[in-house]
């Protein structure tokens, strides 16, 4: 008779421990805070779902969420087509390939807070290169510390500068995997450049673009460091994105309960949108 034992479970244990300490336990702490009120000294009072209700009904949260969606939508609308366009115009072989790739990768290698600081100085109206040029050479009234529109233009530009490369590199990887034979076949079919893009290049890039959009969505939806260093959420609250607002509530006001509830809602939205997007994009591949 075959003996059965449960020793195989030990092989799963390391991963279980890793996931537990990495994700589950910190998250349960947040869950713990989100349903209680605390006044320090480890004194806790049961709150139930009160904080969740408060956050979901709060105008401040709605405003921050709206700004967050606008920011993410804007950078996706700009970065994805721009990234594809740059990838399409990059050489596929020869001397310039590594040069282009390194140039593209450079912005992504800079630490996020440095990017924020760089753009802050760059955009200062009187001493920054960009700010000075716009104000004193072109005569455009540009001051991101005073004008919400200028602040938005600056954080969007900064993100495009920092992260379009990711889309470029992923799209480029998809493009170089297309054998010359398909381009030849398309030419012989009489396909225009647009048809080649629409029916050969785009379908071949679909998988990498799904990943690119997913990564850009998650990163931009959770963005904190760069806009915090650049505008600090201002002027006023005009660039206070969700994460910035969250930190204000948690560390500025020390409202740990509402902050924890907001974290969980924030997390649920990110997860839901990512899951929806990924499921919709890959549902054709299953059959």
């Amino acid at each position: 008779m075959k003996t059965e034992n449960q020793k195989a479970w030990f092989f799963v244990l390391p991963v279980l421990l890793l996931v537990a300490f990495n994700a589950l336990i910190p998250m349960m702490t947040v869950v713990n805070y989100s349903v209680q009120e605390t006044f320090g000294d480890n004194l806790f009072f049961w709150e139930g779902l009160g904080w969740f209700e408060q956050i979901l009904r709060s105008d401040r949260f709605h405003a921050a969420l709206g700004r967050q969606f606008m920011f993410t939508a804007l950078i996706l609308i700009i970065e994805v087509p721009l990234g594809i366009a740059i990838a399409l115009s990059m050489p596929r072989k020869g001397f310039w390939v590594p040069v282009c790739l390194v140039l593209m990768a450079l912005p992504m290698l800079i630490p996020w807070n440095v990017v924020g600081a760089m753009w802050n100085i760059f955009a200062l109206p009187d001493i920054g290169l960009l700010g000075y040029f716009l104000n004193h050479v072109l005569g455009i009234n540009y001051d991101m510390t005073q004008d919400p529109v200028a602040a938005w233009v600056t954080i969007i530009t900064m993100d495009v500068w920092h992260w379009t490369s990711l889309v470029v590199l992923l799209a480029y990887a998809g493009l170089v995997s297309i054998p010359d034979a398909y381009y030849q076949a398309a030419k012989i079919d009489g396909a225009s450049n647009w048809s080649v893009f629409r029916f050969i290049q785009l379908p071949k890039m679909k998988n990498v673009l799904t990943i690119a959009i997913l990564l850009r969505f998650m990163d931009s939806f959770n963005i904190y460091t760069e806009p915090f260093v650049l505008t600090g959420g201002g002027p006023g609250n005009s660039t206070t994105l969700l994460s910035i607002d969250l930190v204000k509530i948690a560390l500025g006001q020390f409202d740990l309960g509402p902050a924890a509830a907001m974290s969980l809602i924030y997390f649920a939205i990110t997860l839901l949108v990512s899951w929806l997007f990924y499921t919709l994009m890959t549902k054709d591949d299953l059959n």
Partner: peptide, 21 residues
């Protein structure tokens, strides 16, 4: 004249079909 405008067909030794169609 560009290949696109030539009204020709070409069949290769290796089989070329669009894989996603």
């Amino acid at each position: 004249l560009s290949t696109q405008k030539r009204r020709i067909s070409l069949v290769h030794q290796f089989f070329v079909n669009y894989p996603h169609m």
